[in-house]
């Protein structure tokens, strides 16, 4: 088994955990649960992009992972801001 096959197997495994985590996004039960699961999805997506780089040999994907990590907080801040607006 070569090195890039191990990377591909890890990528497949991460994709499988992402698809299972999507069930939690879909069933909830509360909106916080959904957003939490979406955050886990973002983190696994970054890991997936990083191990995909040696497999498909596109080094520019590291910039995509960088943007993923930069925008991870935006959705959560937009989601929780709602509560403060209602409290005021």
């Amino acid at each position: 088994m070569s090195l890039s096959e191990i990377h591909l197997a890890v990528a497949l495994l991460l994709l499988a955990t992402m698809s299972i985590g999507l069930i939690r996004v879909a069933i909830g039960p509360t909106p916080s649960d959904r957003l939490m699961a979406a955050q886990l999805l973002g983190t696994s997506g970054i890991g997936l992009l990083l191990v995909l780089i040696p497999v498909i040999r596109v080094p520019a994907l590291i910039d995509v992972a960088l943007v993923f990590s930069l925008l991870a907080a935006v959705a959560i801040v937009a989601f929780t801001r709602r509560r403060d607006g209602e409290d005021a």
């Binding site: 909106p31 960088l66 990590s69 991870a72 907080a73 959560i76």
Partner: peptide, 29 residues
């Protein structure tokens, strides 16, 4: 290294915000 640091910052902030909201908000649904 930078990607990991950004994820750490975003995750810590996000977990704190979600937990605060979950503690304070009753009847958010």
């Amino acid at each position: 290294v930078l990607i990991w640091l950004f994820v750490l910052v975003a995750s810590a902030t996000g977990a704190h915000l979600i937990a605060k909201r979950a503690l304070r908000a009753d009847g958010e649904d």
